[in-house]
C-alpha cells in the first residue's frame, strides 16, 4: 500500500517535472500567440494591434538595462507611430507596486501590460531581461533581441524601419 503510494507520488513528481520543464522558445518566423493581459486600466491584447508592426518588450523593475530601453521605446513610438508601429511592453514583476514605482521614475508612453505570473514570458521562452520581439503586420516574429545595450539602438531601429516597410 505504502509502496503504491510512493510510486504514485513519484509519478506525479515526474509529471510535474515534465510539465514544468522549460517551454520551447518561440523563434523568428513563428507566429506570436495572442496575449490578453490587464493593462493600466482595461485588458489589453496583441490581437487588437493586428495589421501594425509591434515592438513587444518584456521588462521588470529590477532589470537594470530596462531603464535604458524605456526611453528608446518612447522615441521609436513617437517617430514611427504614423508609419504603423506599436510598442507593447509586458511587465513581469511579482509585485505590481514595484512596477508602479518604476513607471513613476521612467515614463512610458506606450501600451503596458502586467503579467505578475510571467505566463506570457514562459509562452515566448524569454531568455534574458529585457527581451524584445519585433512582430510583423501579420503577427509573425521577425526579430528577437535579448538584453538591451545602447550600442544596439541603431540596428534595432533599422529592423523596425524594415518591418514597417518605410522607404
Amino acid at each position: 500500500m505504502k509502496m503504491a503510494r510512493m510510486f504514485k507520488l513519484f509519478g506525479a513528481g515526474l509529471l510535474v517535472a515534465v510539465l514544468s520543464s522549460p517551454a520551447l522558445a518561440l523563434d523568428a518566423g513563428a507566429r506570436a500567440p495572442d496575449i490578453r493581459l490587464p493593462g493600466l486600466k482595461d485588458l489589453v491584447s496583441l490581437e487588437s494591434l493586428k495589421g501594425r508592426v509591434v515592438y513587444l518588450d518584456f521588462w521588470a523593475s529590477w532589470c537594470g538595462p530596462c531603464r535604458h530601453s524605456f526611453p528608446f521605446m518612447n522615441q521609436m513610438l513617437e517617430k514611427y507611430r504614423s508609419n504603423g508601429l506599436e510598442v507593447f511592453a509586458i511587465n513581469v514583476d511579482e509585485k505590481r507596486s514595484d512596477a508602479d514605482r518604476f513607471l513613476q521614475e521612467v515614463p512610458a508612453r506606450f501600451t503596458l501590460a502586467f503579467d505578475s505570473k510571467g505566463e506570457t514570458a514562459k509562452l515566448f521562452g524569454v531568455k534574458s531581461m529585457p527581451s524584445s520581439y519585433i512582430l510583423g503586420r501579420d503577427g509573425q516574429i521577425i526579430e528577437i533581441h535579448r538584453g538591451f545595450r545602447d550600442e544596439d539602438r541603431q540596428s534595432i531601429e533599422a529592423q523596425i524601419v524594415r518591418a514597417l516597410g518605410v522607404h
Binding site: G64, R101, Q104
Partner: peptide, 21 residues
Amino acid sequence: KPTKYGSIAAAALALPGVVLH
C-alpha cells in the same frame, strides 16, 4: 517622494557582485 523609491531598488542593480549578470 515615493517616486524616488523605485530608483533605489533599481539603482541597487548597479552594485558590484550581482552574480547573475
